[in-house]
Computed example of a mutant assay.
Amino acid sequence: MLFDLDGVLTQTDKMHRKAWQAMFDEYFAKQGLEPFEESDYFNYLDGKPRAQGVQSVLESRGVSLPFGEATDAPSPHTVNGLANRKNECFLEAIQEGVEPYAGSEALLRAIKAAGRTRMGVVTSSNNGPIVLEKSNLAHYFDLVLDGNVARAHALKGKPAPDTYLYACEQLGETPDKAAIFEDAVSGVQSGDAGRFAQVVGVNRGVGAQKLMDNGATCVVDDLGELAEALDGNW
C-alpha cells in the first residue's frame, strides 16, 4: 500500500497552503497581480513537485520567469527561487511539530498489526522524512520516496505514474495488486495512469466527484472509515 503524505497522512496540507499563501501574497503584491486564492492551491499546486507548481501558478497570471536551478537562493527572480522561498516558510511552520490525521494513523496501525502488506510513502515534497519524523509516523513505513529520491532516479512527478510505479517495484509488488491513497487530482491521475488496483481518494477539499472524475476508484472523507471497515476483516 502506497500513501501520499501531505493531506493524506498528516495535516501539513494546511501548513503548505499557508506557506504558499505567504510567499505568493508577498510576490503578487509587488507585481500588482491578483491575490492568491485557495482555488489556486487545488488547481495548480496540490500534489505537484514544488517548482512545477510555482510555474503553473505564474502561468495562470501570465507571468514568465526563468526556471532556474533547484539550488537557487530563495528569491523572486526564478521559479526555483520562489519555490525555495516557500519551502523556507514551510520549514519554519513545522518546527513545533506535525499533527497526523487520527483516522489515517488508525488505518496504519490496523495494517501494521495485520502484518500482511508492506507500506510506503510517495510524496512530491522534498521534506518527506522530516515530516514523518515530526509526526511520529516513520516507523510504519518500509519505504519513503520523496522529491529528492525522484530527482536522483530521474522519475517524473505526479500526475505521471513514475514515482508510484518505482515505489511499487521497490516493495516487490505489482500495480495490479497494490493500492494508493491520494488527496490531490494529480495524485489520483498518477494512480490511474499506473493502472493500480485501487486508487483511494481522500477528500480534503478538492471534492469527491473531482477525484472520481480523475481516476479514483473510491473516495472517503477520512481514512478512519477504512480502518473501521477493515477491523478484524484482514
Score class of each variant (00 low, 15 high):
L155M: 12
L45S: 07
Q95A: 15
A150V: 11
G103I: 06
M1A: 14
K86C: 10
A184T: 11
Y44R: 07
L82A: 06
V122P: 13
N43Y: 04
F24P: 08
A83W: 02
A110Y: 01
N136D: 15
L107I: 00
L2N: 06
F67Q: 10
A114M: 00
A227I: 06
L107S: 01
Y140G: 05
G207N: 03
E37I: 05
L45A: 11
S190V: 08
N80F: 12
K158I: 04
D231P: 00
T78N: 02
R17Y: 15
K156W: 02
G191M: 03
P100Q: 11
F90H: 08
K112C: 00
R195G: 00
F67M: 10
D162K: 08
N126V: 11
C168A: 04
D46G: 00
D13I: 15
A197L: 13
Q11L: 11
F196N: 02
G103K: 03
S135R: 10
M212V: 12
A19Q: 03
G97H: 13
G172K: 04
E34Q: 14
A160H: 11
G205W: 01
S64H: 14
A83I: 01
V79T: 13
F67V: 14
D25T: 09
E92C: 02
S124H: 07
N233W: 03
L171C: 10
E105N: 05
D213H: 07
M119N: 02
L33S: 12
P74W: 05
P100G: 12
E38M: 06
S60D: 12
M212T: 13
